[in-house]
């Protein structure tokens, strides 16, 4: 019975092929340093899950953002846990992604044939920092408000087009409700969508070329 059902599904879905292509791949002898990439992916997924649950209560408006976070932290069951994981997860994700980049650099894994994997990887590092930057403003507390004030001003110091960049980031000349709304949208839709797409490409390339082996003396 199960066998039949499996065969039917297999016929339609090609599970074996997916299994062969994604999971049953040969790899060079592994090393714990190789887990950094998957750890980044794990953190991305965890941030996604906890982030989605935070939006159940969070309200992106200067009038309500702070109070809604206070509510999550103090009144919602396990709200402190969900937000705590999301808060510390962001810190850990930046660290893990950065260390992953350094590891790939040290083992020179970005060389032929993995150049593109590296370029998309740098994109992922920048997008991760973008997630951190946009997410930081959302609690609308003193620390986040002033960090964003400074951050956007630094971006605005670009010669000639600085003022335009600043206005685009803030949604106007000042840090306001528009900024919060923009950062919220960027944090939950735009950047995650980009991240997911680039992660897809990055993973495809990793599978296509296989994980690089640790270099030995004659490499």
């Amino acid at each position: 019975m199960w066998r039949k059902l499996y065969a039917w599904l297999e016929d339609r879905l090609g599970l074996e092929e997916i299994y062969k292509a994604t999971l049953d791949r040969p790899e060079p002898k592994g090393n714990w340093w190789n887990t950094l990439g998957s750890a980044s992916l794990f953190l991305f997924l965890l941030q996604g899950v906890t982030g989605i649950f935070l939006t159940v209560y969070y309200t992106p408006s200067p009038d309500h953002a702070y109070d809604s976070i206070q509510y999550i932290m103090n009144d919602v069951a396990f709200g402190w846990l969900i937000r705590g994981i999301h808060h510390w997860g962001s810190t850990l994700m930046v660290i893990v992604v950065f260390v992953h980049m350094v590891r790939v650099f040290v083992t020179a894994s970005y060389k032929y044939p993995r150049e593109l994997t590296w370029i998309f990887g740098v994109g992922l590092l920048l997008l991760t920092l973008g997630m951190g930057f946009t997410g930081y403003l959302l609690p609308w507390n003193q620390r986040s408000y002033w960090a964003t004030e400074v951050g956007t001003r630094i971006a605005g110091s670009v010669p000639l087009i600085g003022d335009s960049i600043l206005r685009v980031l803030r949604g106007g000349p000042d840090l306001s409700a528009l900024t919060l709304q923009r950062f919220f949208s960027g944090h939950i839709w735009i950047i995650p969508a980009l991240l997911a797409a680039v992660i897809g490409v990055h993973l495809y390339l990793v599978m296509r070329h296989g994980e690089s082996h640790f270099p030995d003396k004659d490499d």
């Binding site: 649950f53 919602v76 069951a77 709200g79 969900i82």
Partner: peptide
Amino acid sequence: LLGVPVVGYLLQ
């Protein structure tokens, strides 16, 4: 570990 708190979080 994540599922149980989440259920509480949503159904509270």
